[in-house]
Each structure stands twice: as C-alpha cells, then as structure tokens.
Design a protein around this nucleic acid. Structure first.
Lengths: 256, 256
DNA sequence: TGACATTTGTTTGTATATCGCACAAAATGA
DNA sequence: TCATTTTGTGCGATATACAAACAAATGTCA
C-alpha cells in the first residue's frame, strides 16, 4: 500500500482508511452521511460505513441514523500530541505575553506538507474571518509563518514544496509566481523576518520570525497578526518585530 | 467486538486499536517504544508495531528505529472537530473577552465520560501547573465545570458517573464522598454556579456557570480560573460571576 | 569478564476479520 | 409513477490478529 520502504504486512489498511474518514470532517460540513464521506475520501461506501460505525461505537462520533458528526472526544487524539510534546506548552506563555504586549494575536506553527500547521496560539481578539487554533492549517506560500518555514528549506526545498502547491490569488496582492516567491524568500532569509500584507485576506497583515534550536535549525515560526487598520507596515517592523525577536530568543534559551 | 448493538462485521478492529495506540501517547512520555505502547494499551506487540508503522508511513508519527513520537500532523484529527463544529468557534471570542476583563483564564468544556473535556480556552496567564488546551481533560468530580455538567445530569445521572469515577483527594479540600458531592451538586443547581476552592490543585480557585440552549438544556460549561492569591471567593462571586453569566447569556442568544 | 535471564523487536503459520464488489432494499425527488 | 440516489448486505478474495517461536539487544550477577 505505502510507497515507502515498509512491507505491506506492516501496514494496517483499516486504520489508515479510518484516519482518512476522520479528516473528511475537516473541511466544510460537520454533518456527513456515509455517501458524503465516501465521495470526499474516495473510499468504498461499505468501508466508510464500517469506519463510521466504529467511530460511533467508540463514541468518537454521533449517528442519528442518517448523518454522522464527530464528538469532542476526537480532541483526545490531537491532545495526545499537544500534551506529550514540550514545544507547544513551552511556547504558550510566550505567545500569551506577545498577544498581551501587542494587543493582537500571536501564533506558532510548523510546516506540514505545503501548509502551515498551527501548534499554539494566543488570541487577544479575533483577527481573521476564520477561526484559528492548534491544528488549523493555512497555505504556506502566502502566510508570514509559511514564508519563514519555506525560507528555511533553501531554494531547492522551497521550490519543491511550491511546485506541489495550488498557488492561487486570495487577494490582488497575493504572490502566485514561483520565481517571485523564491525571490521573496531570499529577502526573508536576509532580513530574518517575513511580512504578509493582505496576501491571504484583505485587511490582514502579519509578521513572522523563525524559532531556531541551538544548532541554528528553524524548528518553528512565530507570528503576530493584526488588522491592517490597526497596524501599519512600519509599526509592525518597528514595534512588533523587536518583541517577536525577543520572544524567539527567550524561547530558544529555554529549549536548553 | 463492541458491546453495543452493532454487528461484529460493522466494526473495524484495526481502526479501533490504532486509535488506542494514538491515545497511548496522551499521558506522560512522548517517546514510546513498541513495547511501551503494548503495555499501555494491553494490545499485542505485533499489532502495536503495525499500527505504529502505519502512523509513521502516513507521517502522523516519526520513528528513529527505536522510539516513536507523534508529529503535529496528528492535530489534523482534532481540528476536524474544532473547525467543523460551530460551538468552539462561537465561544472563543467570548472567552477572550472574559479573560481580558478578568485578567485570568477562561475555558469552555463538555462532559466526556467521567471527565471534563476542554473545547475552547483563552488564557491570560498560565494558572495551573499543567497546560490546558482544547482536548485537555480533568476529572469532573473536583472541577468547577465538572460540577456544573454533573449537576445537569440530575442526581441519578450524576451518581452513575461518580460511581464510575476514581475519586481521590488531590488536596485536603477535595470532596471524595459521593453523597457529599451529590449534595454539593444540589447547591450548584440551586445557585446556578459552581465554585472549586483548591480541590483540584492547591492555590487554584475557579468558578463556572452552565451554557444552555433555547430548550434550557446545559450544553457546555464556562469557567474562569484564578490563582487563590489573586482572587478571593468573594471576588469570584461578586466580580467574576456576573461577567460569566453575561457571557453565557450572550452566547445563548447567538446560538439562535 | 562471561554466562544466564529478561526484555524487545521481528517473523511465521493459521484462524479469523475485513475489503470491495455486486446486488437488494429503502429513501428521495421529479 | 418512475428515475435516481443512498443505504444495507452476502460473498469470495485478501488482509489482519493472535500466539508462538526466534533473534537481537539489554540487564544482572557471580
């Protein structure tokens, strides 16, 4: 099944398919029928049905005879990561402080495929039209943290990711040309920070810096996002950037 | 396999076992060997091995040849719930506001078995020795939101849950006698709020109120937690309780 | 150190469970 | 009503679980 090096007998198909079924609830509707999930996942309806009934039996999902919905219990799975991994817990108080000092929202993320994956967040106020929390994903190519994480991959690595990305213009400011983005990543590397000015969503600006371990490797990105009406680009660089860098520095030190 | 009404053929064992494997990472160490997980879950080593290799193949886990660790990608699963369910997103700005007004942490939770399960949280400062986030769980019998949610079950329902709970004294103030807790739940019902004064952890107080839908059913609990040194019981009731009630009222209205 | 016991990871054989297909039944809509 | 979509169900082919055996690593003690 896998294209990797593992033997077929070392792979549990039923488990892998079940995980795809859970993820089918990620985008859009929370109430899905068996046929809905089958369409979204491309799995056989009979297989989807068994997976969903398994989730319902374990109370990870509710079933009203027609539609399935995930229950909060499914949060246990992500929590297994959040509680066991030191990084998110370590970041949280620093993000809280950043949010407090700037009066805006502050987040941390890592790269997951072509997307930025939020691992921690402190929100002072809701800044975007969508709700962000640990587990949320945004496209890397047009988010400030994504630019930081792509820049850390080097030109070749970044180009690989971008080649796999669906580059579309969320606003009329969005960079969608690979070479233009690669050039921007060079500036990001040189300056040590990335700024996104309404490329993801009109009215939203954000600035991000890398979080590095002792070996100088970028292990995550930190950002502060603000409504364009609240923060000019100049303010972001002059007022927020020093705070971000300070936070990154403090966190790096406590990484030990 | 299940003890419910589903037929055996409608249950995917491999999936159910894989989920148990993921949850094995929830408590304690983030680096687990095959044997570690087998011990924690009670599953056969060979079965655990294939589940873990499946997770690694799908990049939900890393494997260094000896230990497995979950990757942030596992957050996608919990996010499937958070992004698809309106309640957590609806709650977040209200919790943010509560945290800002009180200068403390504010959370929302639902009951999951004998435990309180956090579905949203706004932290001004870290108040507890442990890190809480969506997916975190605390025992219901000795937490303020737990008392609210147990009270909503009625005496019989609450007694059922408590009978299944491992009641132990976290501090010398913890109520561990079922009848004493049931009596307290009566007061909670009457007053419309629950207060925990260092029953869960020394130095921590918290106050919670129910969040009700239009039919008057309790669908979640909201709380504010504070270090005992920052908030007296009187302050909680006189200053925080009105804010909590106001928030619950506002949220109820926006439930439509 | 070296022999022995324990633990761990991996493989194998076999009974059993699961998959995906094809079809039946039920629901939905024109 | 009929057409369409969705759900439920036997069935043969295949995949998986379990137990047991094995190999490798690790720990223990004289």
């Amino acid at each position: 099944m896998g294209d990797g090096a593992v033997k077929e007998t070392d792979f549990v198909n039923g488990f892998a398919k079940g995980l795809r079924v859970i993820e089918a609830f990620g985008e859009g509707d929370r109430r899905l029928s068996i046929a809905d999930v089958a369409k979204k996942t491309g799995l056989d309806r009979a297989t989807v049905r068994r997976s969903l009934l398994t989730l319902a039996e374990l109370q990870y999902a509710d079933y009203d005879g027609k539609f399935f919905t995930l229950t909060p219990r499914i949060l246990r799975l992500g929590h297994a990561y959040l509680s066991a991994t030191p990084l998110p817990a370590l970041l949280q108080p620093h993000l809280d402080l950043l949010a407090e000092k700037t009066g805006q929202s502050s987040s941390a993320s890592v790269l997951d495929g072509t997307q930025v994956l939020y691992i921690a967040r402190a929100s002072q106020r809701r800044v975007m039209s969508i709700n962000l929390n640990p587990g949320s994903r945004l496209p890397a190519y047009c988010s400030s943290m994504g630019r930081i994480l792509l820049a850390a991959l080097g030109d070749d690595g970044a180009r690989d990711v971008l080649a796999r990305t669906d580059l579309h213009a969320n606003t009329d400011r969005t960079l969608t040309d690979i070479d233009a983005i690669i050039a921007e990543l060079g500036r990001v590397r040189q300056l040590g920070y990335a700024i996104i000015d309404q490329e993801l969503e009109l009215g939203l600006r954000s600035i991000a810096v890398p979080l590095k371990n002792r070996r100088g490797e970028t292990i995550a990105a930190l950002n502060v996002g603000a409504p364009a009406a609240h923060m000019s680009l100049t303010q972001l660089v002059e007022h927020v950037l020093p705070l971000l860098r300070q936070a990154a520095e403090n966190i790096s030190l406590s990484l030990g």
